[in-house]
């Protein structure tokens, strides 16, 4: 309840900043908004792969509708959709090569218009997270992941939780800011294993430097 109250206060202060001061703004229906968006990308002329980038799936639709603050029942539904989408490594092995994981964490290439589809798509974790303390070019949209494995005693449950977070962050935080790397087929299971090694290998710079 307390959380809900805080969340709704936040939502009010975030969205009401301007709209509240402007009289006579029309309410925009979902249909009207979607029509505008489709027209803005000339949807009718696009191949299916590009149309799919415009069409919203259920999670995107709900998170848009509630501006990322879904009420508890909706949040529970989004979290269930996320959990049901997760595929775990068949051999039960979560850790790959931390050096490959470091490269994937730095790499922001891929899936933009004009990008070469044959090149490796990156995870671009540094866009939002601090990871190795030696890399100073990191963003602040997400929490710091410095010493991530070390702080968790390289615990197997923590590794599994991190796998889930990367595969689909909504499994624990409905409407997370973080992309659904596994569910949305941005990264493969092997890619995620390499990144997990970057976070959890004791030899990884994430855990070694001060």
């Amino acid at each position: 309840m307390r959380r809900l109250l805080v969340a709704s206060l936040l939502a009010l202060s975030a969205s009401g900043a301007f709209a509240a001061e402007i009289p006579g703004l029309p309410k925009i229906s979902t249909e009207r908004r979607e029509q505008l968006v489709r027209d803005g990308f000339r949807y009718d002329k696009l191949p299916p792969e590009l149309r799919a980038r415009i069409d919203q799936d259920e999670t995107q639709r709900l998170c848009t509708e509630y501006r990322n603050e879904p009420p508890p029942e909706v949040a529970a539904h989004i979290e269930k959709l996320a959990r049901d989408s997760i595929v775990f490594p068949q051999d039960g092995n979560f850790l790959g090569d931390w050096k490959k994981g470091e490269a994937l964490s730095l790499n922001g290439y891929g899936l933009r218009m004009g990008d070469d589809p044959k090149r490796q798509v990156g995870g671009n974790c540094y866009a939002c997270h601090e990871m190795s303390p030696t890399e100073l070019s990191y963003g602040t949209l997400g929490p710091s992941l410095k010493a991530y494995g070390k702080l968790r005693d390289y615990d197997r449950e923590a590794i599994k939780e991190a796998y889930i977070k990367i595969y689909n962050p909504n499994a624990t935080v409905a409407c997370s800011t973080m992309p659904r790397f596994g569910t949305n087929k941005i990264l493969s299971i092997d890619d995620i294993r390499h990144i997990l090694a970057f976070l959890f290998d004791p030899e990884s710079p994430v855990n070694r430097a001060e």
Partner: peptide, 18 residues
Amino acid sequence: EAYALGEAVFYRRSSYFD
């Protein structure tokens, strides 16, 4: 209407990265 539409689109999530 254009203002209200702009705001609606500002919060709209889609594509690979949501």
